[in-house]
Design a protein around this nucleic acid. Structure first.
Lengths: 103, 103
DNA sequence: GCTTACCGTAAGTCATGGCTTACCAAGAGA
DNA sequence: TCTCTTGGTAAGCCATGACTTACGGTAAGC
């Protein structure tokens, strides 16, 4: 059920770019905002959505907030995809077999 | 670049449900519409988005259209995710090593 | 202590997109 | 041929959400 939030979070281009930027190393809000074509509050709002989807983590560093990737969300998305893939594949194979028998 | 359309397509709950319904077997538009709380035209519109994202395929069967899963989109999403995962992981490991040396 | 940097939240605006009804085209079946 | 089924598209409505500016609160640094 939680992958709903994950897909929603990654659907917005700006938000996905922010997420992708964190791939190399943790960054503060200001650092992230400099790399994006939107204002700092907008980045904050995006980070909130990403955090609720378990895609990023925060760590307080004085007044700074260091955002980093949260593996939980990534893992969940991966498992959803693998599960879907396997289901579809076995259904497909069953269909093939069914056709083999009827021929 | 195309995974943008994939994430967008899967972000909408109704649209994702339609996609998931096709996992077990191909279905027509009317069949899909019966399983959803929205009108048939709405389903058609969702299917268009899914098709443009390479997530579903269509096959004409008289006036009927048989929609099925397109593996291209699924594969692309999987590769994006794997690539992201690997990038983040190696960055994380590099960070660990860096800390080991400085300590 | 006083100022500055950092960042989250509130309020308000505006575009996007998901939904509906209405319509039209094309094949099925009698 | 005539009717019914199937489904794609257009137009219009409306909610959602992405963005901005304004504000407040907290730690840093001089």
């Amino acid at each position: 059920m939680a992958y709903q939030e994950i897909f929603t979070a990654l659907a917005d281009p700006t938000r996905r770019h922010i997420f992708e930027t964190l791939r190399s190393e943790p960054k503060t809000v200001s650092e992230l905002a400099k790399l994006q074509p939107v204002s700092r509050p907008a980045v904050s709002q995006h980070l909130k959505v990403l955090q609720q989807a378990n895609l990023v983590d925060v760590e307080a560093r004085g007044t700074k907030r260091l955002y980093s990737i949260n593996w939980a969300g990534l893992r969940e998305l991966r498992e959803y995809l693998d599960s879907f893939w396997n289901d579809a594949l076995s259904a497909y194979q069953a269909e093939i077999e069914r056709r083999m028998k009827t021929n």
